[in-house]
Amino acid sequence: MMKQVTHFRTLVRAGLIAIVSALVVLAAPGVGQAEESGESEALDWSFNGPFGTFDRAQLQRGYKVYREVCSACHSMEFVSFRNLSEEGGPGFTPEQVKVIASEFEIEDGPNDDGDMFMRPGLLSDRFPAPFPNVQIARLANGGAFPPDLSVLAKARVGGPDYIYALLMGYEEAPAGVELAIGMSYNTVFPNHQIAMPEPIFEDAVEYDDETEPTLENYARDVTAFMMWTAEPKLEARHRMGFKVVLFLLIFAGLLYATKRKVWAAVH
């Protein structure tokens, strides 16, 4: 009896420590930053949760928004055309992706004359950058450099929720707020002054499916697309995680029984 009481106390203690340390760990990364960059509401994304997957149609729409709007200024340097038809992604067919790739001009060479030349994109090519270097990009954007979008959804506190909130966060500057030249007012951006002008408006992109061409849908779809470019193996990760956790639970049960059996002799 006493024995069990002490066991129980040890367990309670262990539990308390685990909870306190978990709280510290979970609080630590975001601390200090969430306060200033405004709150971004947690949205119900299809890729959330342990079984989350991407919505193929949404990624395809998001790609279209990226292609027709974002790609004018933002590069996506770690994404290749072939990725668009890979498992766990937007689910384009390889034929569709070949067409998509061929719409881009890629610099290649040097050829036998020693010259660089332009050719249509191939599956193995990466998405070309809109500007050849940072300096030109700054020059064309009033001194601000449009960040690369490949991993941006993982590079911001709040991730996709923040990006969606940012895209939806453009407003008239309230009275008394003096905007610097070329800046726009955004409710979630740190200090509320952002160099990117409001990028997208209703009806700016024509969707191929029935989805309403609203600002909310554009923002949602392109954000989901950016989450995929940042974490293209998310679906594989969730799938494998389920198997691994299940395996470990059974294994732990077996080991517990084994341990009990082994120790039975001395208790």
Partner: peptide, 23 residues
Amino acid sequence: ILFFAIFVFYTPNILGDPVNYEK
């Protein structure tokens, strides 16, 4: 390992700083 696996498979970036995904 079970505890470890939950981080790896379900919240692999929660212990890291998002800023490190910027070059």
